[in-house]
C-alpha cells in the first residue's frame, strides 16, 4: 500500500496518504526523469496530487481506478513512452545532469514545509527515515 520506490519508478498502490507527499517530492526532485505508475492507485491525497501536478513526472501508467481515471486524467502528466522500469532509459538519462544537484536544492523547501511542527521530526526527516525502502540503484543520495 502507498508509494513504493523501485529504481526510477514510483509505484502507487491502494491509498496514498498525505505523509508520503514529502518523500515523493524529494524523490522526484532528485531525478526529474523518474516516473510514476498510478495503475495500482485507488486513492490519493490532495497533497500527492498537487505534487504530481507541480512536478509533472512522466507517467508510466495512469490510474485504472475508474473514479481517478475519470476525474484526474486531465491534470495528470502525459504517459511517457519508456517501456522498461528500473533501468534509467534514454529519456531519463538526459536530465540526469542538472538533477544531480536537485537534492541539495530541495532541502530549503523541506525546512519551509515543516514550519510550526515543533515536536515532530518533520516530513523531510521522516522521508529519510524511510529511505531503506528505496531500492533504486540510481539513488543519488
Amino acid at each position: 500500500m502507498g508509494i513504493s520506490f523501485e529504481g526510477s519508478l514510483a509505484r502507487f498502490s491502494g491509498q496514498c496518504a498525505v505523509e508520503e507527499a514529502g518523500e515523493l517530492t524529494e524523490w522526484l526532485l532528485a531525478d526529474r526523469s523518474r516516473r510514476i505508475d498510478l495503475s495500482g492507485c485507488e486513492g490519493l491525497h490532495a497533497s500527492i496530487l498537487q505534487t504530481v501536478m507541480a512536478l509533472r513526472p512522466p507517467l508510466a501508467a495512469g490510474p485504472v481506478d475508474p473514479t481517478l481515471s475519470r476525474w484526474l486524467s486531465r491534470v495528470l502528466p502525459p504517459i511517457a513512452t519508456a517501456s522498461e522500469d528500473g533501468a534509467a532509459g534514454p529519456a531519463a538519462a538526459e536530465p540526469d545532469l542538472p538533477d544531480a544537484a536537485a537534492p541539495a536544492d530541495a532541502r530549503p523547501a523541506r525546512t519551509r514545509r515543516t514550519r510550526g511542527a515543533k515536536s515532530t521530526p518533520g516530513s523531510g526527516a521522516a522521508g529519510r527515515a524511510k529511505s531503506p525502502r528505496r531500492t533504486s540503484k540510481a539513488d543519488p543520495s
Binding site: 501536478m53 523547501a109 514545509r113
Partner: peptide, 21 residues
Amino acid sequence: DIGTQTAWPEPVAFDPFACNL
C-alpha cells in the same frame, strides 16, 4: 476542473504540504 490558486513555484521551492489546489 482541478487547477491551482497561484502558479506553481519553481520545483525546488514546491511545498507539497501547502495546498495550492
